[in-house]
């Protein structure tokens, strides 16, 4: 068993294999943003509360500021950059656009990841379930009204809040 302050890692990022050497202390979010120039995920807090850095780790949402980069080894990671393919936005992204569910856009990358995951788990959520499902993502612009509406619309439902 190796013990070291740097590690060689290999993982799948947005469908492509990444091989890198990372310091043990580097957070996954800094690795994605600073080393791999994947700046979609954002940093908004120090403590894992804002969720702007949310990515999918082996298919589940996690906050990439609450993990070490070295822990990406062997995993499959997807960021917001992976959602739109060939320029086509996903239904969640389209719904956010149509329903004005973003303003400054800083929380949006994380919010969209959480919304996408939520609908995967629960394709037909109630407004309360949407609010619970987005509990790990803070937005300070929208008051969440249009975000809830957009997620409901992406699920093919009108909200009746």
């Amino acid at each position: 068993m190796d013990r070291s302050d740097t590690f060689d890692i290999e993982f799948t990022l947005n469908g492509e294999t990444v091989v890198a050497t990372v310091p043990a202390r580097r957070l996954l979010i800094h690795f994605l943003r600073d080393d791999l120039d994947l700046t979609g995920p954002k940093i908004g807090c120090d403590t894992g509360h804002c969720g702007a850095c949310t990515v999918l780790y082996d298919g589940r949402t996690i906050k990439s500021c609450m993990m070490l980069a070295v822990q990406a080894d062997g995993a499959t990671i997807e960021t917001v950059e992976a959602l739109a393919s060939d320029g086509e936005m996903t239904p969640v992204q389209e719904a956010f656009h149509e329903h004005h569910a973003l303003q400054c856009g800083y929380c949006t990358a994380g919010m969209v990841m959480s919304a996408t995951y939520l609908l995967e788990k629960n394709p037909s959520p109630t407004p309360d379930e949407i609010r619970e499902g987005l509990r790990g993502n803070l937005c300070r612009c929208t008051g969440y009204v249009n975000i809830v509406e957009a997620v409901a619309a992406a699920a093919g439902k009108e909200t009746s809040e």
């Binding site: 979609g40 950059e81 992204q93 956010f96 800083y106 949006t108 990358a109 969209v112």
Partner: peptide, 13 residues
């Protein structure tokens, strides 16, 4: 919206 929704916004950091 499009650039912000697809992670292509350019913020200072």
């Amino acid at each position: 919206d499009r650039r912000l929704l697809t992670g292509q916004g350019r913020y200072v950091d």
